[in-house]
């Protein structure tokens, strides 16, 4: 018989960090490594909850100095108006520098998800715009809020993830990453995507938002919204959402679980209208977070394809 497993619960040691504080410390360590190792890092700001957490962590990491790098937002033109309003308020509030970019040529050419499909639309309005913006700024590092628990191909991401001169990710030639020694050496034109929240879960993010009182876009909170039911998703009716044949708007109490473009972001039915209710809801939740995002399902293994092409 193996007699060594004790029957009692492991007791937290007197000097041990709480789970959230340990994640916080890990992220701050990564943010400081990024600021120290690179000449022109940027923080990719998507206005979502993960971005809010990243900004908060960056303020902590460099206190009492300001965040030593600019924020970069890729505006597809299909974002919820609340998101842009929140962005401008939050960025001003903490005194950060913002670079906002749009793929204007694609917009002028009338790119939209209905006529060319969500995959192509995303490649032009998001991926292409991002790569252009990074090149224009000369960024050698781009901080992102992606987490390994979001999607299976992300489970294999490094914290410092190498991108070649075309901005592409090759899952087969990733640099080995051991301990917390992050290799940020790049040649001109190459860059590193940095993911300080790699080891966080969705529940961790919301618990941290609750603990630290971090502001987030109101779209995350439940309220009565006009939506259409599309497949398994509820699509809130915004001005630029087109109704497909046979669709009828209905009223539902719902909230967004992750933010994106209006035509591609599904809401979930929910009563959670405060952060603590969201935390409680997540503890009960049995479905994954990105399920309600249309783009992840448009091809099998689609997130991985997008990532290889440089999608964030």
């Amino acid at each position: 018989m193996i007699a060594t497993a004790s029957q009692t619960l492991p007791v937290p040691a007197l000097h041990s960090l709480s789970h959230l504080r340990a994640l916080e410390a890990e992220a701050i360590h990564i943010l400081r490594e990024t600021a120290a190792q690179f000449e022109r890092p940027v923080l990719l700001y998507s206005i979502g909850k993960d971005s809010s957490v990243m900004l908060h962590l960056a303020r902590k990491a460099f206190f009492p100095c300001r965040i030593p790098f600019p924020l970069m937002h890729i505006d597809t033109g299909y974002e919820y108006p609340e998101m842009i309003a929140f962005r401008d308020w939050f960025v001003a509030e903490i005194g950060a520098r913002l670079i906002a970019r749009t793929n204007q040529r694609a917009v002028d050419n009338g790119v939209n998800p209905y006529d060319i499909g969500t995959a192509r639309c995303c490649a032009l309005l998001r991926t292409q715009a991002l790569l252009d913006a990074l090149r224009e700024y000369g960024a050698d590092a781009a901080l992102g809020g992606a987490r390994r628990d979001e999607e299976r191909s992300r489970a294999k991401e490094r914290v410092f993830s190498f991108r070649d001169v075309h901005g592409q990710w090759d899952p087969k030639t990733q640099r080995p990453e051991l301990w917390s020694l992050y290799n940020g050496r790049v040649s001109p034109g190459e860059h590193i995507r940095v993911f300080p929240l790699s080891n966080w879960t969705e529940l961790d993010v919301w618990s941290y938002i609750e603990m630290e009182n971090i502001p987030v876009v109101p779209l995350y909170f439940a309220q009565e919204r006009e939506v259409v039911v599309r497949g398994d998703s509820l699509i809130p009716l915004e001005s630029n959402v087109r109704l497909l044949a046979g669709e009828r708007p209905v009223k539902k109490r719902c909230r967004l679980r992750s933010l994106g473009c209006t035509p591609c972001t599904g809401a979930i039915e929910s009563d959670a209208d405060t952060v603590s209710k969201i935390v409680a809801e997540l503890r009960r939740f049995r479905r994954s977070e990105r399920e309600n995002r249309v783009i992840d399902h448009d091809q099998d293994g689609s997130m991985e394809l997008k990532k290889r092409e440089g999608y964030f």
Partner: peptide, 15 residues
Amino acid sequence: LKAEREQGITIDVAY
């Protein structure tokens, strides 16, 4: 990863 699913092997470290 998709490549792994096709080949039926896992390639790297996943968390």
